[in-house]
């Protein structure tokens, strides 16, 4: 029970370290870095590795953006299993809708409530 919290912390932290190395060593922009991590998550799921990874690390695997690539691929493959090639396209957002829909919803709500402030500290 306690161990999953420790694993989530360490694994999630390590994925962020990979991101930081892409920022600082490879000198990539945040957008490029996040795209690479999303594609990595997608490929890992294609190899059947991401689901066991979630079982192992819990939120350490579902919270980093890599899980977004995993969710998209997972939805596409699940539908493809049922409906063949057509499912590849139709199943894409089956699993991942919560991330995008909540970002859109909360983004809109935030724009109703907040204003940006150029504060430094």
């Amino acid at each position: 029970m306690v161990s999953i919290f420790i694993t989530a912390f360490i694994v999630g932290g390590l994925i962020c370290v990979v991101g930081q190395l892409l920022f600082d060593v490879a000198k990539l922009t945040p957008a490029h870095t996040l795209c690479i991590l999303v594609v990595a998550g997608s490929v890992l799921d294609g190899l059947g590795l991401y689901e066991p990874f979630i079982d192992f690390a819990g939120a350490g695997a579902t919270i980093p953006i890599t899980s977004f690539g995993n969710a998209l691929t997972h939805g596409a493959m699940a539908e493809a299993e049922k409906h063949g090639l057509i499912g590849v396209v139709t199943g894409m957002f089956e699993v991942t809708s919560s991330g995008i829909s909540s970002a859109i919803l909360f983004g809109f709500i935030a724009s109703l409530i907040f204003k940006s402030k150029g504060k430094v500290k």
């Binding site: 999630g12 932290g13 994925i15 962020c16 370290v17 990979v18 991101g19 930081q20 892409l22 920022f23 600082d24 945040p30 870095t33 996040l34 991590l37 919270i63 980093p64 953006i65 899980s67 977004f68 991330g99 909540s102 970002a103 859109i104 909360f106 983004g107 809109f108 935030a110 724009s111 907040f114 204003k115 940006s116």
Partner: peptide
């Protein structure tokens, strides 16, 4: 925190939300 706050899904949320707040001035 650098990538520590950019890589988690909260960073994705921040990217969407900050853009939404910023462009409020041009209408919804």
């Amino acid at each position: 925190g650098g990538a520590g706050s950019a890589v988690p899904i909260t960073g994705f949320g921040n990217a969407v939300i900050s853009a939404a707040i910023e462009h409020k001035s041009e209408g919804y």
